[in-house]
Design a protein around this nucleic acid. Sequence first.
DNA 1: CATGTAATATACCAAGCAGTTAATTAACCA
DNA 2: TGGTTAATTAACTGCTTGGTATATTACATG
Lengths: 124, 124
Amino acid sequence: MQDPLSQTFSALADPTRRAILARLREGEASVTELAEPFLSQMTLPGVTKHLKVLEKAGLVTKGRDAQWRPCRLNPEPLKDINEWMEAYRAHMEDSLDRLGEYLKTVTKPVTQNAPTTPSENHEP
Amino acid sequence: MQDPLSQTFSALADPTRRAILARLREGEASVTELAEPFLSQMTLPGVTKHLKVLEKAGLVTKGRDAQWRPCRLNPEPLKDINEWMEAYRAHMEDSLDRLGEYLKTVTKPVTQNAPTTPSENHEP
DNA sequence: CATGTAATATACCAAGCAGTTAATTAACCA
DNA sequence: TGGTTAATTAACTGCTTGGTATATTACATG
């Protein structure tokens, strides 16, 4: 049993599942419709499993229409992530500022001394 | 090898790791300092492993000061998550509206239902 | 009723992960 | 030099995860 936030994060930690969510942004879809783009890489039960993960995380809800299970996006859990991120927003902007200043010092004349350890930029 | 976004999400899908990040928001800390709050539930190598996950995801960078490895928060990967969430922001507001309307319909009659379990929030 | 379609359940496997204990590296200090 | 502290590595375990093939349930219609 995981806490809800962990469950949401881990549900999102898979490109197939994120693609399913992206598809659902455009509206309801049945399981086979959702599965269709992946059937070259994965079987239908595979997709069903991914859907179940999303469902357990509360990101997707399934209805019933005869033999179809129309799936809908439920963005509620994303709000919790959004809220969690809030605390880091200032840091994100800070590091943007630092990058800006770093770039300034780098593009300025040679007389400027070395910036405070650019520290390997992971992703440029 | 995972795509970077999946790697970030999955790094965040653990309460210990999120707590470490939260601690790092307040500034640099050595591994033992970071580990201290968890040592009742987990050994030091356990924490080291979590740190390595965060490091691989690019969320934490380690420096060196003699025998210490001062760790710092690197919020860069969070920007990607933020960007990813952008596409869902409209949906979140939509569902907020729906919640608002739902509450309106619910708060009309006398049947004020109980608040949905405050649920101890781990990280403020 | 028999058949086709939508979806899930079951049982299994390989790989990865969270955690442990014990050993090891690396730096400082006296 | 030897001892202490900081941190990592190695080797192992149990559990979860992502995927499969196969079987099964549920519904609609000829």
